[in-house]
Write a protein that binds this DNA or RNA. Structure first.
Lengths: 123, 123
DNA sequence: CTGACACCTGGAGTGCGCTCCAGGTCAAGC
DNA sequence: GCTTGACCTGGAGCGCACTCCAGGTGTCAG
C-alpha cells in the first residue's frame, strides 16, 4: 500500500491538483488521508478510484452523476446493484455517443473527399 | 431551391432558434436572407451548411475553429486547400477521440462485469 | 380587421467544469 | 536555522456554448 504526494497523484491520474482538491470538495473523492501537518496523502485505493473517475469523465459522464455514483460507493456493499445499474445506463449512453461519432466521422471523411476532388478539378 | 422558416430550419438542423441566431451573430452562418419585414428565410444552401456545422459540433470541434472554417468558406475557392487541411486535422483529432472513447468503454465494461460478479457473490 | 402566434433585437444570465489567486503553512536539503 | 518549493484554504473568476428575457414587430387565418 503505497502513498503518493498530491503532485505524484496528479501526474498519475491526469487530474490537475486543483481538480483533485475540487473533486474532494464536492464529494467525488472521499476524505483523503493527511500528514500531521495537513497535507494530502493519496493511497493506491485513491488512485484506483481516480482511474475510474477518469474513465467516467472521458466517456462524458457529467459531474453530478459521478457524485451520485460516489455517494453510492460510500454507502457500502448494499448499493452494488444501484451502481451496476448506473454504469449500465452510462454504458448505453456511451454506445450511442460512439455510434453518433462514427456516423459523423463518416460524413466528415466524405466532405474531405469532396473538397479534395474540388481541389483536383481546380488545378 | 426551397425556403424555410426559422422554426422549420431549427427542426431540420437540430439547432435551437437561439442557436441559429447566435451562429449568425458570430459569423458561423453568413447573412441569411430576410423577408421585407426582417424575418429570416433559410435556403437549401443554408440547410446544407448547417448540416456540416452539426457534423463538426457533434465531433467536438470548438466554435472558434468552426468560425475559422466559416471565414475560409466565405473567402471563396482560393481557400479550399486550407479548408481541407483544417478538416483533415480535425478528422485526426476525432480518430483519437474515438480511440480513447473505445478504450475507456472497454474499462467501463470490465468494471461492470466486476460489479456483477460481486453482486453474484453477495447473494 | 383582428387575434394569435411566430419572429425580431440587444443584452443579460446560466450551467458546467474547472482554474486561479492571495495569503499563509509544511517539509526537506544544506 | 534557513531557504525553497510543494502544499494548504476559501473564495472569486473564467471560458465555453449557449439560453433566456423584455419589449416590440411581422404574418396570416378567419
Amino acid at each position: 500500500m503505497s502513498a503518493y504526494t498530491p503532485s505524484e497523484t496528479s501526474r498519475r491520474s491526469g487530474f490537475s491538483l486543483d481538480t483533485l482538491r475540487y473533486y474532494e470538495r464536492i464529494g467525488l473523492l472521499s476524505e483523503v488521508d493527511r500528514t500531521p501537518g495537513g497535507q494530502r496523502v493519496f493511497s493506491d485505493h485513491d488512485l484506483g478510484w481516480l482511474g475510474l473517475l477518469r474513465c467516467l469523465r472521458d466517456t462524458g459522464m457529467p459531474i453530478n452523476q459521478m457524485c451520485r455514483f460516489a455517494e453510492l460507493a460510500r454507502d457500502g456493499d448494499g448499493t452494488v446493484a444501484d451502481r451496476v445499474e448506473l454504469l449500465r445506463a452510462h454504458a448505453e449512453a456511451v454506445e450511442e455517443q460512439m455510434a453518433l461519432l462514427e456516423r459523423q466521422y463518416g460524413h466528415l471523411r466524405e466532405k474531405i473527399r469532396y473538397y479534395e476532388s474540388e481541389l483536383a478539378a481546380q488545378s
